[in-house]
Design a protein around this nucleic acid. Structure first.
Length: 415
DNA sequence: TCTGGGGTCCTAGGACCC
DNA sequence: TCTGGGGTCCTAGGACCC
């Protein structure tokens, strides 16, 4: 067992909101929310009123009447997020980026250059503050799980170092919902058997946890509660799926509604897959009905696909079958497509959409080639003139997107 | 007056093969 | 004809994270 804490977890505080307060000093010290119809991020001043990310804007206003809404500077988020991660990268190459504003790092190999892990954490915080003007919290511990918890405890704008000798003492008095993998459902189930803290979880017999959470989840949480976390820093992991979704408000479950939406979603996904030569074999659609229940349908093909029109047609077939199985659902509120079983690298020109029967989809046919050529042409034009220059227009959707495209891109993983 | 969008992982049951 | 076991893949759903 390693006896030193060398794992760092660094997390920019209320990232989008902090960037807005950095760009506009008049917003500093005030409750602000990025977004409009929906709160994408809230400053700490706003969180004090109960405002949270994902919350409808109207509800946020009720909680905090003096709340100021700002539309986001999404390019700045990307730039500053990249810059913060780069600061960490100046200390060690072993950096695992989790999202735009968060990363793990292992500094075991660079303490001889920069001093003990706690010193490195201080230096990172100081540099991000001085060079970028942003607050960042850092946790230091022997495992990723504990480092992540430590950074949560450190927020806002703090540093917490968990000494290996006192890690269980630190961990066990904290509430279970701070653990990675414990959300509302698991928290509620644990509460039913009287488990509120990580210490209580640690002392709960394995068989009880298995009963309440299932065998795998129970064993995993028990291990984390004793700080047995085997995960290592992974510097580059490839994406396993790519998807897109669109909330619709309330729309009738009809072809004229879902066809243009699915084409638009397929266009977004297809262009990403083609850009990285990573077509996929499994296509999954999700339909959310008016009552917020959602249902999925998927199909796995013999060969991977990434052509926009083929993706769209397959998605349409799946949605049609899904709706036929739910004849009483007349209203849909969201459509989603996801492509998984992605190839590591694939020459897209060789794309062979087997498993589909339509003559037009087969390779070598005139229509099949025409579709590949059309995608290729669209991709080239977008390379030169930008995504909106051409495509299966969102004008067809008839509604403006509830979330700007730039925001969507921030959440996209590198394929 | 019912919360957006992009992801990951796990599970249970069934099909199919050896 | 009935019986058993193991492994892999697929599907649908659920929980969770940022």
């Amino acid at each position: 067992m390693a006896t030193t804490a060398t794992i760092l977890h660094a997390d920019l505080d209320a990232f989008y909101a902090s960037v807005e307060q950095l760009l506009d000093p008049s917003l500093r010290g005030r409750p602000i929310a990025v977004g409009g119809g929906v709160v994408l991020a809230a400053s700490y001043e706003a969180r004090a009123f109960g405002v949270r990310g994902g919350m409808p804007g109207r509800q946020a206003c009720e909680l905090c009447p003096q709340l100021t809404f700002v539309s986001g500077h999404f390019k700045e988020y990307q730039r500053l997020g990249d810059a913060a991660i780069k600061v960490i990268g100046d200390f060690t190459p072993l950096v695992e980026r989790i999202s735009i504003d968060e990363a793990f790092a292992d500094v075991a190999g660079c303490t001889h250059l920069f001093g003990p892990p706690a010193e490195i954490a201080r230096a990172i915080r100081q540099r991000v503050r001085a060079e970028l003007g942003l607050p960042i919290s850092v946790g230091v511990a022997r495992t990723k799980h504990l480092a992540k918890i430590a950074s949560q405890v450190a927020k806002p704008d703090g540093l917490v170092v968990v000494d290996p000798d006192t890690e269980l003492k630190f961990l066990h008095h904290l509430p279970v919902e701070l653990m990675w993998g414990v959300g509302p459902a698991t928290r509620a189930r644990l509460a039913e058997i009287g488990v509120l803290t990580i210490g209580q979880l640690a002392k709960t017999p394995g068989c009880s946890l298995k009963q309440v959470l299932g065998s795998a989840a129970g064993a995993k949480l028990a291990a984390l509660a004793w700080n047995r976390d085997p995960r290592e820093i992974k510097t580059h992991r490839r994406a396993r799926s790519a998807g897109a979704q669109s909330a619709l408000g309330r729309k009738p479950a009809e072809e004229r509604v879902f066809r243009p939406t699915l084409l638009h979603l397929a266009d977004r996904i297809g262009s990403r897959l083609r850009a990285k030569s990573r077509p996929g074999r499994t296509v999954t659609v999700r339909v959310r009905f008016a009552n917020l229940n959602s249902v999925t349908r998927s199909a796995t093909l013999d060969a991977p696909i990434s052509a926009t029109v083929i993706l769209a047609e397959l998605a349409e077939e799946l949605v049609r079958a899904l709706l036929a199985d739910h004849p009483h659902e007349k209203t849909i509120s969201l459509l989603a497509i996801s492509v998984s079983h992605l190839e590591e690298h694939w020459d897209v020109e060789l794309e062979l959409p087997l498993g589909l029967t339509d003559e037009a989809r087969r390779p070598g046919t005139k229509k099949g080639m025409a579709r590949w050529a059309a995608d290729h042409a669209v991709d080239r034009i977008r390379d030169r003139f930008g995504w909106d220059a051409i495509g299966y227009g969102s004008v067809a959707l008839g509604t403006s997107p509830s979330v700007p495209d730039e925001f969507r891109k921030l959440a996209e993983k590198d394929l």
